[in-house]
C-alpha cells in the first residue's frame, strides 16, 4: 500500500472559514508515523479547529486531509475513528450515565468491532487492561460523574485508546491540572508514543510541550508561523510575539 516512511497524516492547503472569519488559512503539514507532534498557539489561533477538521467534527474541501494516503475529508467522524483517528476533548466529554468501564466498552463495541469479532468477556478484559495501564482500574465500576478532573482526563485518553488508534489527538489534556498531575498525564502520553501511536498534542503548558514533542508547530490567526524542533520554535521571534504580544 503506502511506503513505510510515507506520512501518516497529510494536510495540504486546508482553509476553514466561518462566515467572514478565516479560522484556518492555507495550512499544510505532514505528520510521520510514530511522531510526537506538539501544536501550540495563542487562544483562538485555530488549534482546535484544525483538530476538528482532522477528526471530522467539521467538513472541509476534498483532498485537504489525507490519512494513510487516503482522502478522508468526505467521511463522517465515526468512520475516521474506525480508520484510526482518536481524540480527547478540551473539556472532557464522558458518557455520564455510564460507569468508567462502560465508557470504554462503547469504543470497543463500535470502533474496534470492525474486523475482530471478540466476545463481550474478551472486550471487557481489554477495557480493564487499558484502564489499569492508565491507573484507573480501581475506578472501573464507578460512575463517570464521580471522577476527579485528572481521572476524567485519563478516562478520555483511555476511551480514545480503546478505539485502537494509529493517531491520537490530545486537546489540552493537561489544562487545569496540578504540576504532579501534568507529569502523570505526560508520562501516559509518552508511553503511548512508544507503542507506535502517533500523538498530536495541543498544549499551553510549555514545559510539557518541550519535553514531549519531537516537532512543534505554532499557529497564529489560522496560519503556521513556525514549525520545527521545539527549541527553534520557542526561539522564533514571531512565536514570542504571538504569545507575549509586541
Amino acid at each position: 500500500m503506502t511506503p513505510p516512511d510515507a506520512p501518516l497524516l497529510q494536510i495540504s492547503g486546508l482553509t476553514k472559514r466561518f462566515g467572514g472569519f478565516t479560522a484556518l488559512d492555507n495550512v499544510s503539514v505532514d505528520i510521520k508515523p510514530g511522531e510526537r507532534f506538539g501544536l501550540i498557539g495563542p487562544n483562538g489561533s485555530g488549534k482546535t479547529t484544525l483538530i476538528n477538521c482532522i477528526s471530522g467534527a467539521f467538513r472541509t474541501e476534498a483532498r485537504t486531509v489525507l490519512f494513510r494516503g487516503e482522502d478522508i475529508t468526505q467521511l463522517p467522524a465515526h468512520v475516521r475513528t474506525r480508520r484510526g483517528i482518536a481524540r480527547s476533548f478540551q473539556i472532557p466529554r464522558p458518557f455520564r450515565s455510564m460507569t468508567v468501564v462502560e465508557n470504554l466498552m462503547v469504543a470497543l463495541d463500535f470502533a474496534a468491532a470492525a474486523g475482530d469479532f471478540t466476545s463481550a468477556a474478551h472486550r471487557h478484559e481489554t477495557a480493564m487492561s487499558i484502564l489499569s495501564g492508565m491507573g484507573l482500574a480501581s475506578k472501573a465500576d464507578a460512575s463517570a460523574t464521580t471522577l476527579s478532573q485528572v481521572e476524567l482526563r485519563k478516562m478520555e485518553l483511555a476511551r480514545a485508546m480503546a478505539t485502537r488508534p494509529k493517531l491520537l489527538i490530545s486537546d489540552e489534556a493537561m489544562a487545569g491540572l496540578s504540576s504532579s498531575e501534568v507529569d502523570e498525564v505526560l508520562d501516559l502520553l509518552m508511553s503511548l508514543a512508544e507503542h507506535d501511536i502517533t500523538v498530536i498534542m495541543i498544549e499551553h503548558i510549555m514545559q510539557a510541550v518541550m519535553r514531549f514533542s519531537q516537532r512543534v508547530m505554532c499557529l497564529d490567526a489560522g496560519k503556521i508561523i513556525a514549525i520545527g524542533a521545539p527549541n527553534e520554535v520557542m526561539a522564533n521571534q514571531r512565536v514570542q510575539e504571538a504569545y507575549l504580544g509586541t
Binding site: 477528526s55 471530522g56 467534527a57 463522517p76 467522524a77 465515526h78 468512520v79 475513528t81 474506525r82 482518536a86 481524540r87 476533548f89 466529554r93 464522558p94 458518557f95 455520564r96 450515565s97 455510564m98 462503547v106 469504543a107 463500535f110 470502533a111 474496534a112 476511551r159 480514545a160 478505539t163
Partner: peptide, 12 residues
C-alpha cells in the same frame, strides 16, 4: 449522553 463524543468514539 454526548453526541459528539459518541461520534468520535466510533458510534454511527
Amino acid at each position: 449522553d454526548d453526541e459528539l463524543a459518541a461520534e468520535c468514539t466510533g458510534v454511527p
